[in-house]
């Protein structure tokens, strides 16, 4: 039988990109404790200058994602018991993104790529038009539904080795949103989306390594969405739309 150690040894990445350093804190261990609880304890009890992000604490807002023992995780829903290695935690800002300070990563490149992928709604109806009937049984809708629970946490982006090697790559989250919109009957710019995901940093760069699906805290499968985009772009190209 293993016993819970009374003290956690927590190493935290500190500082800005120009001067990164590791600092270690001893944090009281409890039976029920999330990684976010640990970070909050450090900020409140040990070093108030520690910067980190969180908001909802219940896995809805997607703002508390960090690297925990080398793996991207939503810290508010990650129990220390499940991830601590011999009572030790190594916490850092999300991978593949610039560091602002301490555990705060700059999310700008992540969201810029959502826009670059045309992963935004393109209205198809005016104010006076009727609602578009959305039925869960429709195959396209069912495909879109698989991806719409994304909370924009950036974990898939941090987990993706293709993003790490190819900074232009749009990444799993943006491409998955593009895929949900492509399958949404209310979206009016199918050709625009296909063109946006077919460029230099587009869906064709994905090596299908599957880290996005492996680490998505909501059990989504961006790799499946990207495979769908590859299929649809090729189909459009055969159909004569060379730029699609």
């Amino acid at each position: 039988m293993t016993t819970t150690p009374n003290i956690l040894r927590v190493t935290v990445q500190r500082g800005t990109a120009a001067a990164l350093r590791q600092e270690t804190f001893d944090v009281p261990a409890y039976e029920n404790q999330t990684v976010l609880d640990v970070v909050t304890w450090i900020q409140q009890m040990a070093d108030p200058t520690l910067s980190y992000r969180f908001a909802c604490r219940v896995g809805m807002c997607g703002s508390c994602a960090m690297m925990v023992n080398g793996v991207p995780r939503w810290t508010c829903r990650t129990h220390v018991k499940k991830v601590a290695a011999d009572g030790e935690l190594d916490i850092g800002p999300l991978r593949n993104l610039p560091v602002i300070k301490d555990l705060v990563a700059d999310m700008d490149p992540f969201f810029d790529k959502w826009v670059a992928a045309e992963a935004r709604h393109h209205p198809s109806a005016e104010r006076d038009d009727d609602f578009d009937p959305v039925t869960a049984q429709d195959p396209a809708r069912a495909e879109a539904d698989l991806g719409i629970e994304c909370i924009n946490c950036g974990i898939c982006y941090a987990a993706c080795d293709t993003v790490a090697g190819n900074p232009d790559y749009l990444g799993p989250a943006a491409l998955q949103r593009a895929w949900t919109l492509l399958n949404d009957s209310r979206d009016a710019d199918r050709d625009g989306i296909l063109a946006a995901v077919s460029g230099k940093g587009g869906c064709h760069n994905c090596h299908s390594m599957g880290s996005c699906a492996q680490y998505c805290p909501n059990d989504l499968n961006p790799m499946r969405a990207i495979a769908g985009l590859k299929r649809e772009t090729v189909r459009a190209a055969w159909g004569g739309k060379r730029d699609a």
Partner: peptide, 12 residues
């Protein structure tokens, strides 16, 4: 880096 055209050429 790998656009649709190169992707198609490689797959074909």
């Amino acid at each position: 880096m790998l656009d649709l055209r190169l992707y198609m050429a490689q797959r074909l």
